[in-house]
């Protein structure tokens, strides 16, 4: 019921419909207690091996990118340092890595980049850090905006709902990719004088803002639909009769029931946000060169793959592995939350 697009995943979840059985004899002696939905979900999720493995992989990516400064310190290379200029033997006369396989060596594990001779391994780590955490913050913002708008229009109904609905329709009719690209430079130039260098944090905030403003629609529609049906339920009426304020009803009665669809939708939203952030950098309006960024690596790669195909190899493989894991995780999370949907 939650995701607008049914996504088929791995074949592991056939057994998920069963109620989790208590483990071991010790548990049986305890007094029988109701399990909270969250606990049930957790138990179901734990039994899904694909889900657990992909969760570990996704977590691994987030951890190594968070630890990028530490890892590159241990590894001894800095993503901003132009090793090609310090040591002229690293780059040949075309400014391409001189060594075989894009300059891979015990010194530079994933090789060095053309033109500057920066270390690809540490650049990739820092780049993933930029992309993943920008996208994570953007997703949190999108979820907040989407949930707020959905809740307000679903709960209050009437005129508010009508106009928010029109706004949602309008936003959905926009050519979203194009609009994102078009809005970025405007947001940036509003804050920065034309002759100044744009600070990285302005770009970061601009990306966050653009994502928050332009991608909340699908979530808000979902939340609105669920809220509409929840609003008519007895417990909400009871709360109203008892004199609870709208804010309290939203917080205490509605939100707990919305957590499931929000988490499921959020797990699908995060990878697509990562792609959008990478897309902005790839097109040339997101992060710009000295800032290491995953999407930027592909932009560089697309320019030079004829001469130096190995440069793209590691960022690309990392991205494929990450997204396969994330898609599997999304399916498992959905299966764990509502076992009745699906195949």
């Amino acid at each position: 019921m939650t995701s607008p697009i049914e996504i088929e995943g791995a074949e592991t979840s056939s057994a998920l419909d069963k109620e989790p059985e208590p483990k071991g004899a010790g548990k049986k002696n305890e007094t029988v207690q109701g399990r909270s939905p969250g606990r049930l979900m957790w138990l179901r999720f734990k039994r899904d091996r694909t889900g657990v493995v992909s969760a570990w992989i996704v977590l691994f990516f987030f951890v190594i990118s968070a630890a990028a400064p530490l890892i590159s310190k241990l590894y001894g290379k800095d993503p901003y340092e132009f090793y090609g200029q310090d040591d002229p033997t690293l780059l040949n006369e075309f400014n391409l890595p001189a060594g075989p396989n894009g300059g891979m060596s015990p010194e530079h594990w994933f090789g060095i980049d053309p033109n500057y001779g920066r270390d690809v391994f540490s650049y990739l780590l820092y780049g993933m850090r930029t992309s993943l955490y920008t996208a994570l913050l953007a997703t949190i913002g999108i979820v907040i905006v989407g949930v707020l708008i959905g809740l307000v229009s679903g709960y209050f109904g009437g005129k508010i709902d009508y106009w928010l609905g029109r706004l949602t329709d309008f936003m959905l009719a926009l050519p979203s990719q194009l609009f994102m690209v078009a809005v970025m430079p405007v947001v940036v130039t509003v804050f920065v004088a034309p002759d100044e260098e744009t600070p990285v944090y302005i770009r970061f905030l601009a990306i966050l803002g653009v994502m928050w403003l332009l991608t909340w629609m699908s979530l808000s529609r979902l939340v609105r639909a669920v809220t509409l049906s929840l609003r008519e339920r007895e417990f909400v009426e009871a709360a109203k009769v008892a004199g609870a304020s709208p804010w309290r009803i939203i917080r205490k009665e509605l939100l707990p029931n919305l957590i499931t669809p929000i988490i499921v939708q959020g797990t699908y939203l995060l990878p697509s946000t990562i792609l959008s952030v990478a897309f902005l950098s790839f097109v040339g309006v997101g992060y710009q060169d000295p800032t290491p960024d995953w999407g930027l690596m592909f932009a560089t790669g697309a320019n030079i793959y004829e001469q130096d195909p190995t440069y793209m190899f590691f960022p690309g493989i990392a991205m494929v592995v990450f997204f396969v894991a994330f898609n599997l995780l999304g399916d498992s999370v959905r299966d764990a939350f509502d076992p009745k949907t699906g195949r």
Partner: peptide, 29 residues
């Protein structure tokens, strides 16, 4: 069924800006 499901899982994780250059590298260069 399993082959198609597995294949679509992997290909949906591809990005044009990665797989494009790879295929170009193979078929063109």
């Amino acid at each position: 069924d399993k082959t198609f499901s597995g294949a679509s899982l992997v290909t949906s994780s591809f990005q044009i800006y990665f797989i494009g250059p790879v295929v170009m590298g193979l078929l063109v260069f």
